[in-house]
Computed example of a mutant assay.
Amino acid sequence: MKPRHDAVPSPIMTTPEVARYLQVHQSTLYKLIRRGQIPVFKIGSDYRFDRDTIKTWMADRTRKFQALRPKSGPTPDLEH
């Protein structure tokens, strides 16, 4: 069966779907899972992700990152 282009995306995502969504390799996603750094739940032996929770998690991480950046002045030299 072909996927419908007008269909509403599922609120539950699989590991490959989240890896594509975050644009990371699946092994990176599994590291985040093992470290407890990403919200996840299991159904049987499979990991699943709530789409809205992942969006909130990304927004929270973005806010935390932006809070750590200097407000003004030159950006730090990262090549040391």
Results as ranks from 00 to 15, higher is better:
8 V>A: 13
42 K>H: 13
25 H>L: 09
78 L>H: 05
21 Y>F: 10
58 M>Q: 05
51 R>C: 13
73 G>K: 04
58 M>E: 10
14 T>P: 05
5 H>L: 13
54 I>K: 06
16 P>H: 14
25 H>T: 03
75 T>D: 12
8 V>L: 13
40 V>W: 04
46 D>C: 13
30 Y>K: 06
12 I>L: 10
37 Q>I: 06
12 I>C: 06
46 D>L: 12
28 T>S: 04
54 I>L: 08
44 G>D: 15
64 K>G: 03
41 F>A: 14
59 A>Y: 02
23 Q>L: 08
27 S>A: 11
32 L>A: 11
66 Q>C: 06
49 F>Y: 13
75 T>Q: 08
12 I>D: 11
9 P>S: 11
26 Q>W: 11
29 L>S: 05
44 G>V: 07
17 E>N: 10
24 V>R: 02
73 G>Y: 03
17 E>P: 07
80 H>A: 10
65 F>Q: 00
50 D>C: 11
6 D>P: 02
59 A>N: 08
4 R>D: 15
31 K>S: 15
34 R>Y: 12
1 M>E: 14
74 P>Q: 07
5 H>G: 14
64 K>C: 03
52 D>G: 11
45 S>R: 12
61 R>W: 01
63 R>D: 00
14 T>K: 10
31 K>V: 09
73 G>S: 03
80 H>P: 04
14 T>F: 12
12 I>G: 06
55 K>C: 10
7 A>Q: 08
65 F>N: 03
60 D>Q: 02
13 M>I: 05
38 I>A: 02
74 P>K: 06
29 L>V: 09
8 V>W: 12
59 A>P: 02
60 D>W: 03
71 K>H: 11
42 K>S: 14
23 Q>A: 09
17 E>Y: 10
54 I>D: 02
65 F>P: 02
27 S>V: 11
77 D>V: 04
